[in-house]
Amino acid sequence: MKAFEYAQPTTQAEALALLSPEPGKCELLAGGSDLVGLLEKMVLTPDRVVNIAEIDSMQQIEADEIGGGVAIGAAVHLDDALDSPLLAMYPAMMQVISGLGSMQAQAQSTVGGDLFRRPSCWYFRSGNGLLAGGGQMVALGDNRFHAILGNDGPAKFVSASRLAPALIALGATARVIGPTIDDEEFLPLEELYRTPSREGQRETALLPNQVVSHVILPPGEGTSGIYEAKHGAGPGDPMAAAAAALRIEGGVVREAKIVLGQVAPTPWVSREAARAIVGQRVTPETAAAAGRAAVAKAAPVRYRPSEGQHPPSGTVH
């Protein structure tokens, strides 16, 4: 690891004062389950690490008096979220955490940390940058787990957050603070993510000196769930995920939000899938039709194992 300074603020104002407006200078630490490995491998080489896990005001799950939903502090650990009765009305979120496949990950990772998990792309994780040669390494190399949607630019990694598809489907809003403590905005969670178009940009729209302090969910009134297609039973990333939040009346879907995960550089809101299921009863047939609609425009990067380079050894799959 490159040497860095370390600070552990206890308030949101202190945290913001410790951050730098310059990209890459500061990294936010919460549970450490993602960041420390990236520091260890020198994929990230910040001058300062700011630990936001000990900010009291970001460690609570509270009923949102105004909206009727809940406000989840970004520093809430996933196992505590799983045990919280306030979150039982959000099955899609609970299923994601249960499905992480590692109790260590559940205990150590935080809600905010998961939203900012860096991509698992093996070219990125072996130090080739997020776009890995303007997308060329992915296009020419082993790209079996790269983006199949939203991949026409140089970004071909897939968004790594496990919670984001479920939270977006559930209508989550991110409370973003910074650069100063007087700056506060509420951003629909899907707008937090963006596809970078040049090296140096990150996969979220946040400024380097902004922090997501809370995730706010509206009341969980409908039906929700997530399906993650996994390779084997281990704790690795799913190959694809789909979260759905539906309002069903009289057996018929009246409203639907369907968000795909692990398939594009951002969580992928599929309006096509939602359109296919609205007005229908949910049956294996209509669900399959929504699935087909979701991937109708998918364009996998062609895999050319004989022409390309193999992924570097010792990298994360």
Partner: peptide, 24 residues
Amino acid sequence: SGDGSSGASTVLVDGKPMMASTLL
């Protein structure tokens, strides 16, 4: 693993299982 994916550095922190390799 150095990134916590093996579980070999599991310790308890305030009673919870965490990876000593990914904790500062």
